[in-house]
Amino acid sequence: MLVIPCPYCGPRPELEFSYGGQAHVARPTAASNPSPADWNAFQYERANIKGLHAERWRHIHGCARFFNVIRDTTTDEIVRSYRSGEK
């Protein structure tokens, strides 16, 4: 079980969180009339990285907020976490 550093609440056990998939996947707006390829990429294409992976977590049994984590997928080491909208 991981210890996840919530940028709002501090380190908490993984039980308090839910996983939210790869971070920084930009969602095209409907108004921008994305091409089928762009929309498909947004919908279905993920990096599946071996190594440092930016991913979303939600502190669902805590502050309920989404935030981002940089985790090494080979070791599960969490390098850092930061708020949504930050880099």
Binding site: S18, R56, R58, A64, R65, F66, S84, G85
Partner: peptide
């Protein structure tokens, strides 16, 4: 609620 929060927090904060 989870889906709503996701869009509210991350797409339209």
């Amino acid at each position: 609620l989870g889906l709503m929060e996701d869009y509210l927090q991350t797409e339209w904060p």
